[in-house]
């Protein structure tokens, strides 16, 4: 059988994870930072599904974890966006550099 080997998929998910990390650390827009964090969570999803399909085809643990993860990521995004809306009301901006009242 000629298919995509596991390593290719792991490469994809790891690349996606670090694109997320890079985006989170460099982007200055809060929504984009949130999207980057979601990208990291999605790379974890790919990992779970891939491991489940290639290595542990007889069980469903990884798939279940992914389902829960998607639901929780949605909940997290809902709270985060509510907070960002509130920031916008207070600061008139969602740029992370403008919200700099708290500093050491």
């Amino acid at each position: 059988m000629i298919g995509v080997p596991l390593t290719h998929i792991l490469f994809l998910s790891t690349a996606l994870f670090f694109i997320g990390v890079f985006g989170f650390l460099t982007r200055r827009n809060m929504i984009t930072m949130l999207m980057s964090a979601e990208l990291m969570l999605n790379s974890v999803n790919i990992n779970f599904i891939a491991f489940n399909k290639y290595l542990f085809g007889h069980q469903l643990d990884g798939v279940f974890f992914t389902l829960f993860l998607i639901a929780i990521a949605a909940a997290e995004a809902a709270v985060a966006i509510a907070i960002i809306i509130n920031i916008y009301r207070n600061y008139q901006s969602i740029d992370i550099d403008d919200a700099d009242t708290l500093k050491f």
Partner: peptide, 28 residues
């Protein structure tokens, strides 16, 4: 208060993503 909440939710999302990546490797 809103700034604190923003820092909390973004850093906790980031940290749980890191933790989960570790969990997924452990599952593998």
């Amino acid at each position: 208060s809103s700034e604190a909440a923003m820092k909390m939710i973004l850093s906790s999302a980031f940290s749980s993503a890191i933790l989960l990546f570790g969990v997924s490797l452990l599952y593998g």
